[in-house]
Design a protein around this nucleic acid. Structure first.
Lengths: 246, 246
DNA sequence: CTCTCGCATTGACACAGATCAACGGAGGGT
DNA sequence: ACCCTCCGTTGATCTGTGTCAATGCGAGAG
């Protein structure tokens, strides 16, 4: 757990700075936020919260990966969100959770009791504004995912997922963490299947297909090298126009 | 267009009351909102806005149905939102649109110039709060739809869609508009297919299937009678536990 | 070192839904 | 009345992905 410390360090100066919630906070406001924050850690596989639970905290992911999922009784499961460092969990103004939250690796959360956090929002309106912006970003992401789930082929789904992970392999402050052409998959084949609306077998087959076609190279199960990001983008079925790749 | 007037009437007292944005507005605040609002109408089939357009207004649907959709170049299209009366279009803080907005029937919008609306938000913070709440509602809806797109069968998708329309066949103030067991489909088979991630042929076949099994009765193409809502819910694959049907 | 256990891969086959194609029926213009 | 067009339905067939089953493989325990 040592390697997460630097991130926690940065977190301690402003608890949810990762997504620039507090970009405009002054010293006094930061101090107020710091007073109500605390850290909590979970081990891989542990349930963080379940659907229907009372939601008395909001939190931001400091380290590790968690999933947000929705299931039907017969076992079918859909991953509706992938929570990577800097992502936000829980909502002011909501008192129950709609989804199951699970730690897929060891996870460190920076938490706030919801009630004090909400009162703070009233005093610091630009944080409220920022929360709306974050919610709208998530809404856009969810809608893009709807296009993927409803209209893309298995191969395009895998390519899109790899692009997503590549894009997220950057530090919150904008710096690229490592070589983009080598990414570490944060989740298992099963979680990917549930994220993409596929089965593990199909996920596996598509990985082999992309490997045989030279689009990706596999190094173990969790490490993927991407010789050419542009080729992968082409495979993802997304519009290639407009804007830089990352 | 005569029949929409009553709704516009109610809208004129508070422009976006439909989703209770202004539930807590006092007379003065309502007056401020009324000063910057105006109405705009579109005819069936007309494009309201396209992806990438500058977004200089926000609006609420007063009458009619519009769709929010995302497409890839090869023609594949996914409907990412269905806009019924009381729904909100456009976002404060965003200046371009991410999706195509199309009127599928004649549509009346109650619009606000975005900039004045945003300045108003600063002066009326509880409206900002309400916007966050609305965004989170939409996020939940989008995530539920992800489960449908990724994991449900064609029959379940159709049943879920019918349940959604049945649920929305209520007046914003909570009163049921008509008999819930008879619903009018607001969109064509093609739009349904794009909403559910299916083809028109499959949509058609599932309708016939549900009709033959006595789950629904069809009266023309756009009118559906539901003898037993509970049966339909069962077909939709949703958890039947918890809460009233509507 | 070997045994196990959990995850991933691969193969054979089945099937839901897509695709291709023909037909029907309502509405609107002339 | 007629035709024409658009939309929906139905049928025949194809195919991508799911299902079932066997095998591989790395990590941790003993």
């Amino acid at each position: 757990m040592n390697k997460v410390l630097p991130v926690m360090e940065s977190c301690s100066s402003c608890p949810i700075r990762h997504r620039a919630v507090c970009a405009r906070c002054d010293e006094d406001e930061l101090e107020q936020l710091n007073q109500i924050k605390f850290y909590k850690t979970y081990t891989a596989g542990q349930t963080i919260a379940m659907r229907g639970d009372a939601l008395d905290v909001v939190a931001s992911v400091v380290a590790g990966t968690a999933t947000l999922e929705r299931a039907i009784e017969d076992g079918r499961t859909q991953l509706v969100g992938l929570l990577l460092p800097s992502d936000f969990i829980g909502r002011p103004g909501r008192d129950t959770l709609q989804y199951d939250v699970t730690a897929v690796t060891d996870v460190t959360l920076c938490c706030f009791q919801r009630k004090p956090f909400e009162s703070l929002l009233i005093r610091i309106p630009h944080v409220q504004e920022r929360l709306l912006e974050m919610a709208l970003d998530e809404l856009d992401a969810a809608r893009d995912w709807m296009l993927l789930l409803g209209r893309k082929t298995a191969r395009e789904k895998i390519a899109s997922f790899l692009m997503l992970i590549a894009k997220r392999t950057v530090h919150p402050d904008g710096q690229v963490l490592g070589d983009l052409s080598r990414i570490e998959l944060p989740i298992s084949r099963e979680a990917m299947a549930n994220f993409l609306g596929l089965t593990i077998e199909t996920v596996s087959r598509q990985f082999t297909g992309l490997r045989k076609d030279g689009v990706i190279e596999l190094d173990g199960n969790r490490s993927v090298r991407i010789p050419d990001l542009e080729t992968l983008l082409l495979e993802s079925g997304d519009d290639s126009d407009g804007g830089p790749l990352i």
